[in-house]
Design a protein around this nucleic acid. Structure first.
Lengths: 239, 239
DNA sequence: AATTTGCTTTATGTCAACAATGTTGGCGGT
DNA sequence: ACCGCCAACATTGTTGACATAAAGCAAATT
């Protein structure tokens, strides 16, 4: 049972802003903490003890406090003065809001990408989907699903929009956190194949340079994902 | 010549995330720095010397460094390891990207607000515009324009969307910075009256609960604003 | 028995000194 | 005159100790 978790870990790590194995201690701590939060190693709402974490990371409290300040800025932790920092909690409403925003932003990304992406880039996108399909055939639905390749696909389109602001928002740890939740709530991946099909249709629209259609397809795709997730959450809460 | 600058200062301040006159020194420093950056007191790209700023704020370097980390998180400053922090620079491309994102987000906010806002809230929005019109009549076009009341209007609609994520993004200092640029580049406010008219049309659409229309009007409104600003920038760069 | 007061403990906030890294200006060599 | 090298300086990174505020607990009072 080593496989699944590690695969996802690696995929998520590969999308994190940049693995700066060198740099200031605060930067290292910031990324380690972000990683722990995204992977769930640090639970939502968990208290973050400065002394304990500093010791664990082998550094003084100074750099660690700076890391916490940074994470506060990107909204991965919530700080209360004189009472310490806690991992942010993603409740239903928050996730719903996030998906709403995501629909708007990625829809826009799609529309712009239809104009901005080169033919070659779009072709590569198609190849990416081919490899995903192969992966599904080999490993079965559950693993692929909403987690790994999906991220690459969406991120590549955002890159295609050439909008730095957008790339930042979607690459930020805040979004990674959302992805972690998405992963956690998508083991029941009946949506795998339909999702892949939707991806294909989006690529088609891009290839035809039909931005309006591409946006619409992406929006529906994300709406569908959210419906699936919110149903899963509802089920979990019934138990 | 005390009037204009102070008015704008106060208005901007009134929209900043929250004036925590009490709290940790790092929080205070963070907000003071953010304020200085937004108002232009600290120029874009300016080097931020830790020792100097700490002394100026009457605190040690520790809290100030934490403040810088926080500002880095919300992208108001850019840090280079072992080389210090600088105020972020908003070049043309960045502003363009930001406006693109803004169009998508505020458009969405408008569509949702048309469903979510209460009749009373919409009525208040109308009254807000009345007061704006009166203000224009009294003070002349230039002062109102793109700066003050405009912010309230847009922010009220975002609030109407009930989307916390959106409210955060639009309330963040990053957005304040954009507003500062907008202010700086909008003295030539021929767009004042048309803008007010567009605001009125948006409120009408909201009152009729026509989300689609409201979104479309908002998007056009923001596109128009961007066009005006980008023209201004182009003129300035010619000189 | 419940509440409140005050102490103890724990964790956060702050500072000042030290170490490491970048930067600048001058020097000699080509 | 130009380029690379080196040393002195300035600034950032890091640490440990100290101050301060919140949380937990026990005892005393009502």
């Amino acid at each position: 049972m080593v496989g699944l978790r590690n695969i996802v870990d690696n995929r998520i790590k590969s999308m994190l802003p940049a693995p700066p194995k060198q740099g200031t201690l605060a930067d290292i701590a910031s990324h380690r903490l972000a990683h722990c939060i995204v992977t769930g190693e640090l639970a939502q709402g968990q208290k973050l003890n400065e002394t304990e974490l500093a010791e664990r990371f082998g550094m003084g409290r100074g750099p660690l406090r700076e890391a916490l300040r940074h994470l506060e800025g990107i909204r991965l932790v919530k700080r209360i003065p004189n009472a310490g920092a806690r991992v942010v909690v993603l409740d239903y409403k928050t996730m719903s809001d996030l998906y709403e925003v995501r629909e708007a932003l990625e829809g826009m990304a799609c529309r712009i990408a239809a104009v901005q992406m080169s033919d070659e880039e779009i072709a590569q996108l198609g190849q990416l989907l081919d490899s995903h399909e192969k992966q599904i055939a080999e490993q079965g639905d559950g693993v692929y699903a909403q987690s790994e390749g999906n991220l690459d696909f969406h991120y590549q389109i955002v890159r295609g929009s050439r909008n730095e602001m957008l790339m930042y928002i979607l690459g930020s740890e805040q979004y990674q956190l959302l992805r972690m939740c998405r992963y956690r709530t998508s083991r029941n991946a009946q949506r795998t194949y339909p999702a892949l099909q939707q991806h294909r249709h989006i690529v088609e629209a891009l290839a035809q340079r039909d931005g309006e259609l591409a946006e619409m397809l992406m929006r529906r795709h994300i709406q569908g994902a959210w419906r699936s997730i919110s149903e899963t959450i509802a089920k979990e809460e019934q138990i």
